[in-house]
Design a protein around this nucleic acid. Structure first.
Lengths: 120, 120
DNA sequence: CAGCATCCGTCTGGATACTG
DNA sequence: CAGTATCCAGACGGATGCTG
């Protein structure tokens, strides 16, 4: 229903952004690609908890949306790298703003921290 | 599964933010409350396409997450107003950054605009 | 007006097994 | 390593009907 959202909210810029970042996974993938090119297996690691199905599916959609580019090397074993396109990179401020907000929130709500130790 | 995301990604600030803004609807609700207090029926209008079930459910969750406050007036017919808490208001930069990104994106991809006319 | 309760189809997404 | 293919449970969310 992601496309429908855009339709129903017309040309709202916020809805547009959400539309391209439709799932949580995509946001986290962008987050991890902001630091540079990553292999499939690296993403699988850094995006804690994602299944290969969701990772592949998300990457494919992001590719067709022009957020990510895929670079496959004809070697054995296979090696595939993903990196942000210019469009994907332009999302940096969005992710950073989220990161800032989350940091402040975590600072002010120490209880939310208790859960686990760092993951990245 | 929203809480699980936070757990599995540890204390990642980005994941934290996504966690509180877990659904698209919530983002759009915050967007609309940024301009001030709104009644239930007004939100139902401005958040195009949302069902009363989803609206109520989202508002309840946002309330318990401390993003939104609810003010019910004992009149007939009933009147209930919703407004952002300080925490909710602090999300303004997040939504604005999304809006900015979406605006630029729409400007550079005029084809995405064709769909419909303005909705808000 | 502002909900709540319920039914129920749809789709998401995890688990598992297999391949170039 | 980097996927693809299937199965399937459970969550999501719309529609409908009913209240204070």
């Amino acid at each position: 229903m992601s496309r429908k959202l855009l339709e129903q909210n017309g040309i709202c810029p916020v809805a547009t952004t959400i539309d391209l970042l439709s799932s949580k996974w995509k946001v986290l993938i962008v987050r991890d690609l902001l630091t540079g090119t990553k292999r499939y297996s690296e993403l699988k690691q850094s995006v804690a908890g994602i299944s290969q199905k969701m990772l592949t599916q998300s990457l494919r959609e992001m590719e067709s949306d022009g957020l990510v580019t895929r670079h496959a090397y004809a070697v054995i074993p296979p090696k595939v790298e993903y990196r942000l396109s210019d469009l994907g990179n332009s999302m940096r401020p969005v992710i950073e703003t989220m990161a800032n907000w989350g940091s402040v929130y975590l600072d002010q709500n120490p209880d939310k921290r208790k859960k686990l130790a760092q993951s990245e």
